[in-house]
């Protein structure tokens, strides 16, 4: 392909790649916005970013393409996932809007803005693409380096300072100063004995080997679940699963199905309810 041609059109291969991967990118972006769980959003975003990396490469920005994959998709998205895990992976957002009119206003603004932006781009006379062939003649990385260390050297240095500041800031923000010495295991056990509460080790979580298992409260002798058996973190997130009635209900369902198959009239169609729930 001649340089002249590259000025205003691309190869068919690139066009094909653009239409396929562009669709993927838009879908990924939409999923990022509309997925209920933060993890799914993060994964969609990672996909979009990889597509963008390919587009960088296609546009002659080889260095940026690689950096996009290594830094963005590799490091930043992992950071996101890490925080998502920290905050609670299953804490699904409800997408129900709480601020009156917010969603409609946001959509209106978004559509308006998008239309205006696209109209602006369409309106601009962007016909003559010079192409990066000339600029990348000595290699893309060398070209960038020449610019960064000459023309943009101050910006580069300041960016370095910014990064250091950000790193320190993140540490300061997440670091918690201990105001008192942490209690040793020995002291803690002594305190438990002195207070007379939970002298033995905390009970283990439920015994049903399903789901996470650790999020299922163990049952007390009277059949009620004990929150003590579940780890404090899960308790605070409200992620305890109550399965005390699941097994019985399953049994009922099984009985019912077998009775249906045997074409008997069901004796007790309702599912079993815990006494206090039934009384409500």
């Amino acid at each position: 392909m001649s340089a002249q041609l590259a000025a205003y059109t691309t190869s068919t291969g690139e066009a094909f790649q653009f239409w396929v991967l562009g669709t993927v990118a838009v879908l990924g972006a939409l999923c990022t916005v509309f997925m209920k769980k933060a993890v799914h959003s993060a994964l969609s975003l990672a996909g979009t970013m990889i597509v963008l990396a390919v587009f960088y490469l296609a546009n002659g920005a080889y260095f940026l393409g690689i950096v996009q994959i290594v830094v963005y998709t590799g490091a930043i998205m992992m950071l996101f996932l890490f925080v998502v895990m920290l905050v609670g992976v299953t804490a699904a957002d409800s997408l129900k809007e709480t601020i009156k009119g917010q969603r409609w206003l946001a959509l209106l603004c978004g559509v308006g803005f998008g239309v205006l932006l696209l109209a602006g781009i369409a309106n601009a006379s962007l016909k003559d693409f010079a192409g990066t062939g000339q600029a990348n003649a000595n290699g893309n990385v060398e070209g960038l380096a020449a610019l960064i260390f000459t023309k943009y050297v101050f910006a580069f240095e300041i960016t370095g300072a910014l990064l250091i500041t950000a790193a320190v800031g993140a540490m300061v923000l997440t670091h918690r100063e201990r105001t008192e010495r942490a209690k040793t295991q020995r002291e803690l056990s002594e305190q438990r004995v002195r207070e007379g509460k939970y002298v033995p080790p905390l009970p283990a979580p439920g015994v049903y080997a399903r789901h996470n298992a650790v999020d299922i409260a163990g049952l007390l002798p009277d059949g009620t679940p004990s929150e003590l058996t579940v780890s404090k973190t899960l308790r605070e997130r409200g992620q305890i699963r109550d399965v005390s009635t699941d097994a019985i209900n399953d049994l009922r369902a099984l009985e019912q199905r077998s009775e249906e198959r045997l074409e008997r009239t069901p004796i007790e169609p309702e599912t079993f309810k815990r006494p206090e729930e039934a009384s409500k």
Partner: peptide, 19 residues
């Protein structure tokens, strides 16, 4: 294909992100 399509894509992604 005109490379200006990349700009349209960028505008679209930006709007989706903002929304």
């Amino acid at each position: 294909m005109n490379p200006v399509n990349y700009l349209y894509l960028a505008g679209l992604l930006f709007t989706i992100g903002a929304t």
